[in-house]
Write a protein that binds this DNA or RNA. Structure first.
Lengths: 148, 148
DNA sequence: CAGTATCCAGCTAGATACTG
DNA sequence: CAGTATCTAGCTGGATACTG
């Protein structure tokens, strides 16, 4: 009956099977793959669902075209963007849809799985933006202490 | 009066100042730094507060010694562990305490700032462990489709 | 115990040129 | 438009040896 108990039991079960602390565990490799700046930003872009960027609300998937993503993620190279998108597609986090127009139109959209990761990842981006000042202050302090 | 409104307003303000989508924004560099496997695992270790690994409960900081961390994060090299710890210390996410015993005893402990990032990061590790099966299935499917 | 120092293989990722 | 292909500088990170 309890979906809460079910969820907790399921999580516990999977945590017994997979442990990212172990070098050989597949989840360690997965953690490595998703611990990536471009992954975080692609997910943030495709999941941001327009202006309501409230971090406490899971956004709708926002389909975006390749060139839109390239523009949004300033500084990304074609290579890294394509590579990141291919990885995420292979892992089932997003779909790649090709419309046979001329020239061709390619759209990327988060799957439910991708949306679930987005729910986690966007907090990372938000955290970085929210605590940048604090971190910067610590760096100044730390560097000053070392210099003495 | 509402702390909720205050928090939201504060977040919105900071999001106007910092935008990790911009290559030049300091928060982009911060995002890059924290989007790291070893950062995720060090935080997970120092914040896991013993056996109650329930991802919905923020753990107490768990002080750990260098060698404990090295054992916990299987596969980490001395270089990467030390480097990661130094970065996190400089950014104010953890403290490094040296007890002048013989031989010396060094303890690492999350600060409040580090604990707040841990609150976000541990979901990443949990997600990787919880969705590994699904991702693996997608890969098989995807690779099969490509092979045809 | 908790590092530091050094070397180097290999991967990452940017730049550039080209294409259906 | 949305890539692919190629080359390469340089950074990452592992291995190894040494130290207060």
């Amino acid at each position: 009956m309890g979906t809460t108990e079910d969820k907790l039991a399921e999580r516990a079960r999977q945590r017994r099977e997979y442990d990212a602390f172990l070098a050989q565990c597949p989840s360690r490799q997965l953690l490595d793959r998703i611990s990536d700046k471009w992954v975080a930003l692609v997910l943030a872009a495709l999941g941001s669902g327009g202006p309501h960027a409230d971090p406490d609300v899971v956004g709708e998937p926002t389909p975006m075209r390749y060139s839109e993503l390239a523009r949004r993620l300033s500084g990304v190279s074609q290579k890294m963007l394509t590579q990141t998108l291919r990885h995420l597609e292979r892992d089932g986090l997003l779909t790649r849809t090709v419309e046979p127009t001329v020239p061709v139109t390619v759209t990327y959209e988060l799957t439910d799985l991708g949306l679930s990761l987005h729910g986690v990842m966007r907090h990372l981006k938000t955290w970085a933006e929210a605590h940048m000042d604090e971190v910067a202050a610590h760096r100044v302090e730390h560097d000053a202490a070392v210099a003495v």
